[in-house]
Design a protein around this nucleic acid. Sequence first.
DNA 1: CAGCCGTGGTT
DNA 2: TAACCAAGGCT
Length: 371
Amino acid sequence: MWDDAKIKDFQETLLTWYDSEKRDLPWRRNHEPYHIWVSEIMLQQTQVNTVIPYYERFMDWFPTVESFASAPEERILKAWEGLGYYSRVRNMQKAAKQVVQDYAGQWPQTANELQNLVGIGPYTAGAIASIAFNEAVPAVDGNAFRVFSRLFEIEDDIVKPQTRVIFEHVIQQVISKERPGDFNQAIMDLGSSYMTAKNPDPEHSPVKRFNQAYLDGKELEFPVKSKKPRPVEMAYAALVIETDKGFLFEKRSSKGMLANLLAFPLLRVDDLKEKPDDELLTDELVIKLDQWSQENLNQPLVFSPLEGQMVKHTFTHQKWLIDLFVVKTKAFDLSYFPGEFILEKDFDQIAVPKVQQKIWDRYLSLSSNKF
DNA sequence: CAGCCGTGGTT
DNA sequence: TAACCAAGGCT
C-alpha cells in the first residue's frame, strides 16, 4: 500500500487533471441529489453517450422528484423506452415515492441511508453521497474496478460480489476527504479515457507513474474477470392479431423478460424442432396456436404463418428466434386476457421493447411483399 | 452466491 | 458473427 505522501501526490495529480480535463456532462451542472440520482440510475450498465439525450428529456418531462413520483406508469416507461433494464425505472418511481412520502422530499444524505431506497445499491449510494453530499465514500463501478485493479495489480475476480468489498477498502485509503465526489468522478473519467478495457492509452495517462500494472507491462492483464456463458437459444411464435379496434397487445407478466411491458403475444415453442431452412414446424404450431387462442382469448382464431425470415434478437442471457403468425378478425371481449387493442396511430404512445419493434418491422415488410 | 434483467457500440 | 463491453441491482 502507498504511504501518506504518495496518496497525497496521487490525489493532487488526479484532481488537477480532472479540473482541467473533466467532461462537460448535463448532470454535472449542479449537485442536486435528484439530478445525480437520475443520471446514476440511467448510467447503470449504459454508456454516457446513450444516456445524455434520455437524461435531457427526462428532466424536461419530470423536473422534480415530486413530478416524477406522481407521473403515470406509461409515461415513465415511455421515458425509458430503449434504455433497457426496465425494472430500473419502475424501482425509481417507488424510490421517488419513498423520498416524497417517507422523507418529506428531503433526500437521505449518507450512503448507508440511501441504500434504503429501491434501486440504489452500494455503487449508486456511494456516487450520490459523495457527489451530492460530499461524503468520503467509494463508488465502485466498472471504471473503479478497472482503474484500481491496474494501479495496485489486484487479481481478485471482479465478477464475484465479495470482490467489491476489497476494492472499497483500498479506495477508502486513497480517496480525497476534501473532494470525494470529484475524486470518484475523476476515476470514472479516467476509466473511460486513458484506462479503458480494450484500447487503453496508459502511456499518456495523468496517473501513469502510479499504474503498477503498466509499469510492469501488464496493463491488459487487469482487471481479472471470469467469462460469462453464451446466450441460450429459445424459439417463439409472435402473434399479430389485427382487429377493427387495433392490434392485440399483451401486458407481460411482472416477472421475467420485459416485465410489465406491452407486446404482441409471444409463445414459447421450445418443444418443436427447427427446420433446416430456419423456420419452425408451422403445421403443428398453427394447431397449437389455435388451441391457445381458444383457451386464453376464448376466441377460436385460425392463424397463418407469415412466410419469411425469422426475427432474431439477442439479450444478455437469451437469444430469441421468432416466427410470425397472423390473423385478421373482429374485435372480441378481453375480460379474461391481460391486454388491450391498440390502433397503429397510437403505437407511439406506448413503450415497446426493441424485440417488439423488430417484430413489427418484419410484419410490415413481409405483409407488404405479398402484393 | 449465482442467475437474471436490455440495448447499442466495438472488435 | 460472436463475443465483449458500458457509471449495477435484485432475488
